[in-house]
């Protein structure tokens, strides 16, 4: 059978969005699902790790303390200090650091054997984090300039009066729709698509190896599994990058609210 005929015959079921639905207890909207357990587990892991490393700190850091300080230093200096500026970055470091570590650990869950589920491939989780960022950057802006002043400050300076209403509408859409939408969807879609891609190679390879009777197709499964391994490493890169991009954008949005004038 040719590969196309194989797909057309309908015996191979490609992975779909339903492969991400894993209820453990119950079903329907109030089911206890696998990502819920995983995010609770990740909070536990992070809390224990950072409590242990910060309680047993020494002048000469051990390996664990070095790792913990490295991650903290990366977020503090590489993101908060660079984007928010020396004067005001301090209050926002804990939030950015928590988000970065939470996203990183939950993303890496996607490729850890036996866990293998990126929590943020369920859209509700990125939405929850995005809501926090959304409230924070608007709250900072409103607290700085007052409600009217904040909405006035969304207007970029130096726009010709004829274009002003159009530009203002676009800016409003950017701040209230595009920014939160893309922030949540970016994390979700990257995790979802990445995991789906791994599923395609794993399930496709398994099908070729075990459910076909031609030797050529069975040999082709080696290529599929090789791609699976390669893509797993690529996923690790994407997962770390997305955690970084999320906090970078969050810091960037907060910096926009901290600025005196646009």
């Amino acid at each position: 059978m040719s590969p196309l005929a194989l797909v057309a015959s309908g015996s191979f079921e490609p992975p779909s969005a339903y492969d991400f639905w894993h209820p453990l207890v119950g079903d329907g909207p109030f089911a206890l699902t696998r990502p819920m357990i995983l995010i609770a587990f990740s909070v536990l892991v992070l809390a224990v790790f950072f409590l242990v490393t910060s309680n047993r700190r020494a002048m000469v850091p051990g390996k664990l303390q070095f790792a913990a300080e490295g991650v903290y230093g990366f977020v503090r200096n590489g993101v908060a200090l660079d984007i928010l500026g020396r004067r005001e970055f301090r209050p926002y470091v804990p939030m950015l650091f928590t988000m970065f570590t939470l996203i990183l650990v939950n993303n890496v869950f996607g490729i850890i054997p036996f866990i293998q589920y990126p929590t943020f491939s369920r859209i509700a989780f990125p939405i929850a984090l995005t809501l926090i960022v959304f409230v924070v950057y608007h709250a900072i802006g409103i607290r700085r300039r007052g409600l009217g002043g904040y909405f006035k400050s969304l207007m970029p300076a130096g726009v010709p009066i004829i274009l002003a209403p159009l530009v203002y509408l676009l800016e409003l859409a950017t701040y209230f729709i595009t920014r939160p939408l893309t922030l949540a969807l970016r994390l979700f879609a990257n995790m979802f698509a990445g995991h789906m891609m791994l599923l395609v190679f794993a399930l496709g390879g398994e099908y070729l190896l075990l459910h076909t009777d031609s030797v050529v197709l069975q040999a082709a499964s080696i290529g599929s599994f090789l791609m699976f391994i390669l893509m797993t490493f690529f996923e690790l890169l994407v997962q770390a990058l997305q955690a970084y991009v999320f906090v970078l954008l969050a810091a960037f949005y907060i910096a926009g609210s901290l600025e005196d004038a646009h």
């Binding site: 590489g78 993101v79 660079d82 984007i83 595009t178 893309t182 969807l185 970016r186 879609a189 990257n190 698509a193 990058l241 970084y244 991009v245 970078l248 954008l249 960037f252």
Partner: peptide, 20 residues
């Protein structure tokens, strides 16, 4: 580096919207 990643994230947003 942050500028490049930021530009990457903004350009990628369009691909993400298409995906969704």
């Amino acid at each position: 580096q942050p500028i490049a990643i930021l530009g990457f994230a903004l350009a990628e947003a369009l691909a993400i919207l298409g995906f969704v």
